[in-house]
């Protein structure tokens, strides 16, 4: 479980990016942070793996203040997927995926088995892809590897910062579907950043809508659609969502 307690962030240039965030992410939830560009989604997310430190307030994981944890050890228990993917171009897919397990001292047979397992899980045939280099894959395939890499060391928490927004619409849809399936299968706690409300409504168990460094509303997707708290939320949803079409979305399962 992840808890944000009154988290503020003031950047060195004096800009107040977060104005006191309170949020709880329960185990097994897929929470999306959504809001206009610059509202503080990435800042919020990067507090969880301490890529950014809060100016004030605390982030707790399972009740423990992460400020007291070693950042490297903390990060090895948290998967991390970013929009730019960031695979290491000089390593094969297998080496990329097994990097953290290897640094954690796993035995070779164990991490090689894990690589094949994960490539299967994200829909890439291991015999075809494990020895390829990232440049030999499409953007969508690379991000599948990015997801596999994040899952490799079996972290209970995964952070995803607009992981699918650079992909073409069809690939994006596929990866969203697979993320839903995957999360139901492996029950990770996922914090997912997006600016696409359709994506959020489709994949989330809970949505946190942000604006100017604050969380405006949190709730299950259908709750937010049905009871938008204010005009901002209404217009944010309204732009993209008529309220009726939510094909294949999780909304149907959260009545």
């Amino acid at each position: 479980m992840i808890t944000f307690e009154n988290v503020r962030k003031v950047y060195p240039d004096g800009f107040e990016a977060l104005k006191g965030i309170h949020m709880t992410v329960a185990k097994g939830e897929l929470v999306t942070l959504i809001g206009p560009s610059g509202c503080g989604k990435t800042t919020t997310m990067k507090m969880v793996n301490r890529l950014i430190e809060p100016t004030e307030g605390k982030v707790l994981i399972n009740g423990e203040d992460i400020a007291h944890k070693n950042p490297v050890e903390l990060r090895r228990e948290i998967g991390y997927v970013i929009q730019q993917i960031g695979l290491l171009p000089h390593m094969t897919i297998s080496k990329n995926v097994s990097l953290i397990p290897k640094l954690k001292g796993w035995a070779k047979e164990r991490y090689l088995k894990r690589v094949d397992e994960l490539l299967d899980l994200v829909g890439l045939d291991p015999t075809v892809y494990r020895d390829r280099y990232p440049a030999e894959l499409s953007g969508g395939q690379q991000q599948r590897v990015g997801v596999a890499r994040a899952l490799a060391a079996e972290p209970p928490i995964i952070l995803m910062d607009e992981p699918f927004s650079a992909l073409d619409p069809i690939t994006r849809e596929q990866l969203q579907d697979e993320l839903i399936r995957l999360q139901q299968e492996i029950q990770k706690t996922i914090v997912f950043v997006t600016h696409d409300i359709r994506e959020a409504l489709k994949i989330s168990t809970k949505i946190a809508i942000m604006k100017d460094g604050e969380i405006v509303q949190t709730g299950e997707p259908n709750q937010i659609v049905k009871e938008p708290k204010n005009e901002f939320v209404k217009s944010f949803i309204g732009d993209e969502h008529s309220g009726s079409d939510c094909d294949g979305s999780r909304m149907s399962s959260y009545k």
Partner: peptide
């Protein structure tokens, strides 16, 4: 930078980022 960022976010130490990511590249 995204390779470095991913490495850091995954839990590489500064030294590992240097010799696994930055120097080879």
């Amino acid at each position: 930078r995204s390779a470095v960022e991913a490495g850091k976010g995954m839990g590489m130490t500064n030294f590992q980022i240097l010799y696994i990511v930055e120097l080879p590249l």
